[in-house]
Design a protein around this nucleic acid. Structure first.
Lengths: 379, 379
DNA sequence: TTTGCCTACGCAACCGGTTGCGTTAGCTTA
DNA sequence: TAAGCTAACGCAACCGGTTGCGTAGGCAAA
């Protein structure tokens, strides 16, 4: 600690003092000289190429020389310049994640809690593969594809992870056309159908199956009038969850009532407002499948405000498995997605693509796990 | 819907049938030829340098030639190679965010909801400054500084945003010593004291002031036995919030009771377990200040499970302003942090540092906003 | 016609590593 | 002792842009 504090002092007192005005507020000069391979070569009395080889453990350099150069490099805090290396290798050892969640609802504390967990998985696996991770905001409309062109065409990254897949997602055609390496978080139905024509892998949680299982859970509790709240018609995850809901109904020989399948936004507020409406019906549904836990929070709150107790006569199930679900009142039944693992897998798949080793399986489907809590009860 | 189901069906029947040779599964070749400046020059019948200048709108190239070259470039989908440009400029136009939140608790759905909002602010502002954002997992202990050495020494990024500042944070000394450009999300107390000696800017939400205001709010409601749950002694944000709590008590001439100031982890569960304990006291506190909204969720749940109604006799206040707070039962009083804005400001400050234009103010303190809801009531 | 100047562009070095190939010194072998 | 071989390292081109400086060509002024 003492030495550390000394560092602080020396760092402080070592300022370039200019113009007397606020001498100490001046920033230290940028572009500090950082040793290059040429500098090390000069000091070691050898050629650049020898240094380069020594640092990369090339066996053609004898151990003694190698050690000497490595010691020198360490002493000078040498770190190889990434851009220079990238330029040689036509490879940046960087992958990009493009996400819409970065420009959505962000001002209001409504950030998608999922992105962090996905990022954590991605960052972890990427570190293991010595990859940097670039975080990129998705654009919409005209400029959407420009993002990918910039990142991949300009070699900011070697490959990219796509999220928020849509039916007929024109990004896929674009990326394929330009041979831009990528993986998908979430499938594109068309591509799934033509799997043999679409050479890039994808991973996702089986939304359809999850929603089916969740709905079957409600059915098994005796519910027959089950509403499905949420989502638009844009993204696969929305459509697939809705499809799973309908599949379960069909499996139970229940008719599909469009009035019970209600589109919405994705915030708590949406869940709240729609549930208020539902509860005002003459014969309200006895159970609600909220397309996400976030929505479910709004649903439960609306029920409470309307004096309807969540439980046997009004069950609620969510989707995602947010940590807070178990602390709601009552605790929320949900389908937990292994998002962290999805992140890991995506990176692994992309890594394989970048190394020309397409994975054995073209895609990975992870199953969500039904977590039954008190918000769903027998009717 | 119909087309969708068709897709779904084909999806089901479309199991990967490998070992059959599967010719079409082969990945397209990587390293697709992307046009370089040399290629454009060849086609345009001019020198590389002319192309370079034309593309950068250099006035020394006449409009006609410029247009011709630009058209050609557009036609070839030319995108300049980032590494090559970086190598010239000794600048990567990339900033890095190093965060602990990426390797914390991640498996269990307990991801820090804050990171996303911060990231959104950062990504947005960075895009405005034409900066890429690199996301980096923090390491602990021995390897902690190595992360910064790699990123900054190796020029993966020009500057870095530090989070989770600690007292005597040795990262600051290290970064100063090496003149590595950076900004802090959260201050370092020592540096605040010696502001004139620490040349890099920082931004943060005024945690102390926020906690003081929150505590004063409880005091104004008549509460006198107020517990403070949360946090360890590691990070500034924890310490500062606790300091604000004590400051408010002192301001009201109330003695500080160490038993009421309880360290904890940062998950809902921690809040839950500690509150259970508190409620078993002979004379439990009448109000609880949870150091974060996430903890507050656990606190409220514990109260409910113990049959204690959150409100007049047992008030709860959180800190953060998560969107879901208003949907809890009862809605949670909290201090909202303008995290998105913090992200923006951090990028702006770092940008200024990188351009040798230190900001007028060495730091930015944002005030959290007290949002009073039903979880705090007059005692 | 010569001088002068300016426009428009070419040449080549450079950023910092990497790598194919050539070269030298030292040693072995005939 | 000369030829041959190999270990150890140097030379220089290269990755793809950028940029200082040089110069050819055209036109105006003298």
């Amino acid at each position: 600690m003492t030495t550390q504090e000394q560092h602080m002092e020396s760092a402080g007192s070592n300022e370039p003092r200019q113009s007397e005005g606020q001498p100490s507020r001046a920033l230290p000069e940028l572009n500090t000289v950082r040793p290059t391979i040429a500098e090390i070569a000069r000091r070691a009395g050898v050629n650049k190429s020898t240094v380069s080889r020594a640092l990369r453990q090339d066996p053609s350099i004898p151990q003694a020389t190698r050690q000497r150069i490595q010691d020198l490099a360490a002493q000078l805090n040498y770190v190889p310049n990434a851009s220079a290396r990238h330029l040689n290798h036509a490879r940046t050892d960087t992958i990009a994640l493009v996400s819409r969640a970065l420009n959505l609802d962000t001002g209001a504390g409504n950030a998608d809690p999922f992105l962090v967990e996905l990022l954590a998985g991605i960052a972890d696996e990427a570190a293991g593969h010595h990859l940097d991770v670039l975080l990129v905001r998705a654009e919409e409309g005209e400029r959407e594809l420009g993002v990918y062109q910039r990142i991949l065409g300009g070699r900011h990254a070697d490959g990219v992870i796509l999220t928020d897949l849509r039916p007929n997602d024109h990004r896929l055609a674009y990326l394929c056309r330009h041979r831009y390496p990528h993986v998908l978080f979430g499938r594109s139905a068309e591509d799934l159908a033509e799997a043999r024509l679409y050479p890039y892998p994808w991973a996702e949680v089986d939304n359809r199956s999850g929603a089916r299982i969740g709905t079957e859970h409600l059915l098994s509790l005796g519910h027959r009038r089950i509403a499905f709240i949420g989502g638009g018609d844009t993204y696969h995850w929305e459509r697939d969850r809705r499809a799973g809901y309908r599949e379960a109904l069909a499996g139970a020989n229940l008719p599909y009532d469009p009035r019970l399948c209600i589109p919405s936004g994705i915030s708590q507020k949406d869940g709240y407002l729609l549930t208020q409406q539902l509860l005002s019906w003459e014969e309200p549904p006895t159970a609600i499948f909220a397309i996400s836990d976030v929505l479910a929070v709004g649903v439960m709150r609306a029920a409470l405000d309307a004096g309807v107790q969540v439980g046997p006569t009004f069950s609620v199930i969510g989707f995602d498995g947010l940590g807070l679900g178990s602390y709601l009142t009552p605790p929320l039944t949900t389908l937990r997605q292994p998002i962290n693992e999805v992140g890991r897998i995506l990176v692994h798949l992309l890594w394989a693509v970048l190394h020309g080793a397409p994975p054995e399986e073209p895609y990975v489907f992870l199953q969500p796990e039904l977590i039954v809590r008190a918000s769903t009860r027998g009717y």
